[in-house]
Amino acid sequence: MTWAYELRDARFDYGAEPVLRIDEIRIARAGITALVGPNGSGKSTLLNHLAFLAWPGRGSLRFHDREIGAADFRQYRRRVGYVQQKPYLFHASVRDNIELGLRIRGIDQAARRERMQKIIREFDLDAIADRQAHGLSGGEAQKVALARALVLQPEVLILDEPFNHLDKTFRLSLEDRLREIVLRDAATVILTTHDQFLAQTLSNQVFSLIDGHLLPLAAMNLFSGRCSGDRFVTGKLEIAIPPHLPAGNRLAIEANQLVLSKEPLESSMRNRFQGRILRLSDEDLWIHVTIDAGEQFHAVITPAALKDLGVSIGDAVWVSFKSTSVHLF
């Protein structure tokens, strides 16, 4: 696998406050990478760095196998298309907003016109192309900002919460489009989302950002507690952990590491908890299962697996996972 970005030992501080600590992160080239985490977890800080807009207090950054320094940032920005969570649109028409990046890059008028027409048609923006951008709804503004980034045909597309304000139809078409630019143009897409499920289904790589710590997984199951020998005690559950793990007060387990069964499994998995199904939600190709076993667990299974399991809301179910599948931090 080749890497678009490789970050090592990056530290971001606002004043004396540490915002983000990254020991190592590698982001795959020509793939979709999702960063999942709540507000204030450092997602936007990391995106600003990956978009070559902010340099950390310390650390190293490699982009497409080249070491990048702060002095290189300006020239590398043009290789990235970046859509902020709440995009800023200029006091101009929709058309002018989309065209500005092309003008900045000195692209000639004929090429500009061709690219503009194509993106306006693809994003179904014909009806509002000559309207002032400041009168647009949240969803329309998001579309314009996405069109403004994509018209530049960037090598890397960075999207901060891109699915906010979008209706389901456009959201699905955007998901298809992101997959398409990865496959067709070998572009790298990095996006942030609150939606762990979406991150897992859309992306090739998922990272979770929690309180400025980066985890190489979608931390759908996140618990607070303390380590006690080879156990992690949450107050409601005791979870078996490998003895060599460095101690921490947070524990995370990936949703796809959980095994659901109607009876306790005879296996080497040291963690087995009985609970009841609280929620079953159908998310396109996957079923999202929430189980109350003292603590709430979130598992992802296929519709066929749910059918085989033969359970519904309120039924008793066993949740099992290996002690080696937990992450402590």
């Binding site: 978009a51 902020q84 709440k86 800023y88 990046g101 900045i104 890059r105």
Partner: peptide, 11 residues
């Protein structure tokens, strides 16, 4: 957001 947008467009 204005400055960040200008920079991200490569201005």
């Amino acid at each position: 957001r204005l400055g960040l947008t200008c920079q991200s467009l490569g201005a």
